[in-house]
Amino acid sequence: MIIKILGTGCKKCVALSENAMAAAKAAGKEAEIVKVTDFAQIAGYGVMSTPGLVIDEKLVSSGKVLTPQEIERLL
């Protein structure tokens, strides 16, 4: 699966991507984490507050740093 972190490089985006990595590991899934930092691309997902979390091209959360447990439930 591909997990995308939408954000322009703020601290929250780094935290979210670390949590996503931990979640994928805990769930035992092979996941590729992609950071999307371009405005146009972020806008393409309809996100207004960063960081956004996209799993396999589906926007699952925005404006929040989810905990690894919360992300695991979404995987």
Binding site: F39, M48, S49
Partner: peptide, 10 residues
């Protein structure tokens, strides 16, 4: 101001 651009687009 870093969050204003996504808001503008939205």
């Amino acid at each position: 101001s870093c969050s204003s651009i996504p808001l503008f687009i939205g």
